[in-house]
Simulated assay, not measured.
Amino acid sequence: MKRFSLLTVLCLLLASCNSEPTLQQYFVENTESKDFIALDLTTDILKLNKAKVSAEENAALETLKKMNILAFKADEKNPAKFETERTKIKGILKNEKYQELIKVNSGKEGGAVYFVGKDDAIDEFVLFANKNDAGFAVVRVLGDNMTPTSIMTMLSVLKKADLDIEQLKPLQKMVPN
């Protein structure tokens, strides 16, 4: 019995050693929060006419699994919460596993694109955008062996897509009237 207890304690200690927060944990913790809007999207949202998609575009789409979107709407009632949550996201993205591709900043607003994986085998793209008077959004683009070229190809496919706007309705709450 002592051996079982010692083994249990050892496992708990090892599990708690990596207490550094991850983006996945942040999404899970905040998905149900009233302060956030969360969406999980698949390529089905694109409603593509397969006859109009080239082999290259189809190959790029095959690398994409899904997108997770988490958005926080800032207003005059929650400036402290907005700053706290934005600081948490920035802290998570400072982890060395998130490699920064590009960063844009202009005072009250900014954004950055990160990736996880290797240049030729990217498993996750992360887009982080924030605006002091509107809030912030984090988009995780999850896939297998994506490349910057495949992401650019996917963006061109969006022009051909008949987007399913119903899936995006929750994000309308983020857009100021």
Rank of each mutant, 00 (worst) to 15 (best):
F4I: 15
F4L: 15
S5E: 05
L6V: 11
V9Q: 03
V9F: 10
L10M: 12
L10H: 04
L12V: 12
L13P: 02
L14G: 14
A15W: 06
S19H: 09
P21M: 06
P21E: 01
Q24L: 13
N30W: 07
T31L: 08
I37P: 04
I37N: 02
L39P: 02
D40M: 06
L41D: 04
L41S: 05
N49P: 05
A51E: 14
V53N: 04
S54K: 04
N58F: 07
A60Q: 00
A60W: 00
E62Q: 13
L64W: 11
L64D: 00
K66G: 10
K66D: 15
L70R: 00
A71E: 00
K73E: 05
A74N: 07
A74G: 05
D75Y: 01
K77W: 08
P79R: 06
P79F: 09
A80N: 08
E83T: 13
E85Q: 10
E85K: 02
E85H: 07
R86M: 12
T87N: 13
I89W: 03
G91K: 02
G91Y: 02
L93Y: 05
K94T: 15
K94N: 15
N95D: 15
N95F: 08
K97R: 10
Y98Q: 04
E100P: 11
K103G: 14
K103W: 04
V104F: 09
S106L: 03
G107V: 06
G107W: 02
K108L: 12
K108F: 12
K108V: 10
G110I: 01
G111C: 03
V113W: 00
A121C: 06
A121L: 00
I122N: 01
I122H: 00
D123H: 14
E124G: 09
E124V: 07
L127Y: 10
L127S: 11
F128Y: 14
N130C: 06
K131S: 15
K131E: 11
K131M: 09
N132V: 06
D133N: 13
A134G: 00
G135L: 04
V139L: 12
R140C: 12
R140S: 15
R140T: 11
V141T: 11
L142P: 01
G143H: 00
P148E: 04
T149H: 09
T149W: 04
S150G: 09
L155E: 10
V157F: 05
V157T: 01
V157K: 00
L158V: 12
K159R: 14
K159D: 13
K160G: 08
L163M: 10
I165W: 03
I165V: 13
Q167I: 01
L168K: 06
L168C: 06
L168D: 08
K169H: 04
P170T: 13
P170L: 08
P170D: 13
L171C: 09
L171P: 07
Q172N: 09
K173Q: 11
K173E: 13
M174V: 07
M174E: 03
N177T: 05
